Simulated assay, not measured.
Amino acid sequence: MLMFRERRPAYRTIEGWARSVLLEAGAIRECEEHGWMQDRTDPHARDRAFEIARQHPPAGISPEAAAAAVAEALHGIGGTCPECLPDERH
């Protein structure tokens, strides 16, 4: 007998969802060598991320809470990789 499992949501936390929105919008990028997220300081990409959050929040989350989660995630991401040496930064 074929059994179907209930599908898990793609993101387990609102923080993970917010980071994925920032990546999708191009507001952050991953250090190619170490994997740390880096703020690209692109105001247009940030605006796109907030627009995505407000228009497509996760199930059960208000548009305002989704935008706040994106802002909080962005606040916790620096502009440089902490493992890269000053002359190695991408």
Rank of each mutant, 00 (worst) to 15 (best):
D87F: 15
M1R: 10
P82F: 00
A27Y: 00
M3Y: 10
G35C: 09
T41P: 07
F50C: 00
M3C: 08
E33W: 12
G76S: 13
R29N: 09
L22W: 04
T13Y: 11
D47C: 05
D39P: 13
P9V: 06
I28K: 06
P43N: 05
A53Q: 03
Q38F: 06
C81L: 07
W36F: 15
M37L: 14
R8F: 04
G76K: 14
T13E: 13
R48M: 07
E15N: 11
L2R: 11
E24H: 10
P63W: 02
I52M: 10
A73H: 02
P82Q: 04
P82A: 05
A49N: 03
P58H: 03
E24N: 10
A27P: 02
H75G: 12
F4I: 13
R5Y: 07
R40P: 05
H34Y: 12
I77T: 05
E64F: 09
C84M: 14
A59Q: 14
A73Y: 01
P63M: 01
T41R: 15
A65T: 09
A67Q: 01
R19L: 13
R19W: 09
L85A: 15
H56W: 03
I52Q: 05
G79W: 07
D39L: 13
A67K: 00
L2T: 10
G35E: 12
L22Q: 03
P9L: 06
L22N: 04
I28Y: 00
L22F: 06
R7H: 11
A53V: 00
A27F: 01
